[in-house]
Amino acid sequence: MSLRIVVCVKYVPDATGDRHFADDLTVDRDDVDGLLSELDEYAVEQALQIAESADDAEVTVLTVGPEDAKDALRKALSMGADKAVHVEDDDLHGTDVIGTSLVLAKAVEKAGFDLVIAGMASTDGTMGVVPALLAERLGVPQVTLLSEVSVEGGTVKGRRDGDTASSPGVSAPAAAAPAAPDTPGLLRSVFRRHAAGVAVITAQGERPVGFTATSLTSVAAEPPLISFGIGTGASSWPVLSEAGHIGVHILGEHQEELAARFARSGIDRFAGPTGWHTGPQGVPVLDGVLAWLVGRVVARVPAGDHIIVIAEVVDGEHGPDGSPLLYHQGRFTGLRD
């Protein structure tokens, strides 16, 4: 039976914007950009790691909020979540944590769950009580403030770091609230403000593999070298770890769906509607991109939980000029005048 993971997320005002209260003393969300709460983004990452290590798992992201809250769900789906549920009701405007936890509990029950994961707190209210209230309403045990979460043999286990580290564990169904790490969280927060071009990396094994990357870098002109990073736990890594050649595709701003598809886990990324053909050196080449390159892998350099792949460009092609797809503030976007 599939492990059903529900991640509760929140659409919050950007902390770098001019946040203030409206006349009704609720947060004014009209005058500031919103995004997926960074602490909830970490919760989604934890859920995806658990799902990837499970034989069969499904990750559903759930939010309660206005129409714009769909942006938070789109972000979570682009990270690899399988489904999204949006509870939208104007009468919920200004609801406190008591009411919010009740609505979340009803939605979680309807979706079905074995494990509920929530961020330690939201970055706008920072109360941190919704996970506990939600667990109480669902009638399941909870473990909170976790730096690591895993599921082993039907038991939810975690690590809680403090003056003395501990490893609490409860039986599923359960609720968990991971705490955001310090420096990794800071790194993610800083790089949310760094606009990066979006590329898709491909390689050919027994089957074609590919993933969305924002780490593509031009390393040298002579010889022409490029690099990108890939996590050692990524589904594409087993093929990339042995591939002699790789493909690099620069996406246009009209290809947001393609970028999201190659970021999603548990699907055949090369099935329709993806258009592709076999290119030089047997590398899968995507159709309709702004430009593509084929590179011969010359080095794989370990870097933490990632590998930096360096390749020498041996072939490629670019089409007419077009606006590139960018990744900024946790979402896909394009250039703006």
Rank of each mutant, 00 (worst) to 15 (best):
I5S: 10
I5A: 08
V7C: 01
V7M: 01
V9H: 00
K10R: 07
V12A: 08
P13D: 02
H20K: 11
F21G: 02
D33F: 02
L35E: 02
E38K: 06
L39C: 10
D40Q: 04
D40C: 01
E41R: 07
E45S: 02
Q46S: 11
Q46H: 09
Q49S: 12
D56N: 13
E58L: 11
P66F: 05
D71H: 05
A72Q: 14
L77N: 09
V87C: 13
G94H: 07
G94Q: 07
T95F: 00
L102T: 15
G112E: 08
F113Y: 15
F113R: 06
G119P: 10
S122T: 15
G125D: 14
M127Q: 08
R137G: 01
L138P: 00
V140T: 11
V143W: 01
L146C: 10
V149I: 13
G154H: 08
T155Y: 05
R159I: 12
D163I: 10
A175K: 00
P178F: 06
D182P: 04
P184K: 08
G185P: 10
L186M: 15
L186D: 15
L187T: 15
V190L: 10
F191M: 11
R192N: 13
A195P: 05
A203F: 06
Q204D: 11
V209I: 09
F211I: 09
A213L: 03
A213V: 13
T214C: 01
T214E: 03
S215E: 11
L216R: 13
T217I: 14
T217Y: 03
S218Y: 02
I226A: 04
G229S: 15
G229M: 15
S235V: 11
S236G: 08
W237N: 01
V239Y: 04
G247D: 13
V248M: 12
H249G: 03
H249A: 04
E256R: 12
F262V: 03
R269E: 01
F270K: 04
T274C: 05
W276V: 06
H277Q: 14
H277D: 10
G279T: 10
G282S: 11
L286P: 04
W292S: 05
V294G: 02
G295I: 15
R296T: 14
V298F: 00
P302R: 14
A303K: 02
A303F: 02
D305V: 06
I307W: 03
I308P: 01
I310V: 14
A311T: 10
E312C: 03
V314Q: 09
D315P: 00
D315M: 02
G319M: 00
Q329F: 06
T333I: 07
L335W: 09
L335F: 06
